[in-house]
């Protein structure tokens, strides 16, 4: 598994060599107010660039924008749920009017355990946070489209340093052209979590638990029956400001995995309708995969919830 990562890293390094060619990518002064934590030094451990998977767009085209974070060795930035500490990375794409912007897509995070049982979730080395964009039908061929994005992050090693940047990317309107970054986007798309219906290794999911009326705490148990036993099963809960979620206990036996954790409603907060988390695993041939698991929180909606994926149990 280490070797597959090394090969992957090399592929990216080769791609990085052509990053400067085209399209135009430049930093503009940060005007965002996502972070008021301090000044960013010049030798900041994280560099961010705005990229697209095309180098030219035609009217009505759907393409993908991404902010690529290059993180110096030893440092990490955070997932959408930073965990016990840290701060979620932010990416705000600002395409011109008429463009439709999809949701920000987060590749599978890593889990960090620091002394003092401090559990956080994030990324090391490199990550591409993406969103799909649909261009309007009335774009004028020959014109240029300016796409903007803002990114903010907290990176930590021995200490933590915040960073933010405003990014700009110009794409010509005309015929759609492939980009030197197409392979990079393909590689990072393969590291996105999949919906439960598209997973090939999970046969059946059963959820127990949930809040009955006026309850403030519950224990949720996910029972996963796999079509073939995966390895290195991890659980990444989503962040919800109204909830406190304990670290999960994960037990696997044969093709069955049980993931259990407690969820409590914080004082003066109301119970959200649903919650979600990622089950991440490694397939027998070494690929790290993830499934997004939606979890209804009301007991009447939960208990006995069973989802069968398109694959039947053998």
């Amino acid at each position: 598994m280490k070797s597959s990562f090394a090969v992957f890293g090399m592929t990216l390094a080769v791609l990085a060599g052509v990053l400067n060619e085209h399209p135009v990518n430049m930093e503009v002064p940060a005007s965002g107010d996502e972070y008021h934590l301090g000044d960013v030094p010049n030798d900041h451990p994280v560099k961010a660039q705005l990229l697209a998977d095309v180098s030219g767009i035609h009217p009505g085209q759907t393409f993908t924008l991404g902010v690529l974070f290059d993180i110096q060795p030893g440092w990490h930035i955070y997932w959408q749920n930073p965990g016990d500490a840290g701060l979620a990375t932010t990416v705000t794409f600002a395409p011109p009017e008429g463009f439709q912007l999809g949701k920000l897509q987060w590749p599978l995070p890593e889990k960090f355990i620091e002394p003092g049982s401090i559990i956080t979730y994030g990324y090391t080395n490199r990550v591409l946070l993406m969103a799909t964009v649909r261009a309007p039908d009335d774009l004028h061929p020959g014109s240029t489209v300016e796409l903007r994005a803002r990114a903010g992050w907290l990176c930590c090693r021995k200490i933590c340093i915040p960073g933010q940047t405003a990014l700009r990317l110009e794409l010509p309107v005309g015929r759609s052209r492939s980009s030197p970054h197409t392979a990079l986007f393909t590689a990072w798309r393969s590291r996105l979590p999949r919906p439960i219906t598209e997973d090939e290794h999970l046969g059946r999911l059963h959820i127990e638990g949930g809040f009955s009326r006026s309850e403030t705490a519950t224990r949720i148990t996910l029972t996963l029956d796999w079509t073939s036993a995966p390895a290195e099963i991890e659980w990444f809960p989503a962040a919800d400001p109204a909830l406190s979620v304990t670290p999960a206990t994960i037990r696997s036996q044969g093709r069955r995995t049980e993931i259990a954790f407690h969820v409590s409603i914080l004082p003066e907060r109301t119970l959200p309708e649903s919650f979600w988390g990622l089950v991440v695993y490694r397939t027998p041939n070494g690929h790290r995969m993830g499934i997004t698991i939606p979890i209804p929180l009301r007991a009447e909606a939960v208990s006995g919830t069973t989802s069968s994926t398109k694959r039947r149990m053998p």
Binding site: D84, A85, L87, E114, P115, I118, C156, I159, E268
Partner: peptide
């Protein structure tokens, strides 16, 4: 105290490895 608990935020406490 009406809000007796909230999610803390900040840097992780930089603890010694063993204590």
């Amino acid at each position: 105290v009406s809000i007796s608990q909230s999610k803390p935020y900040g840097c992780s406490v930089k603890y010694a490895e063993k204590s």
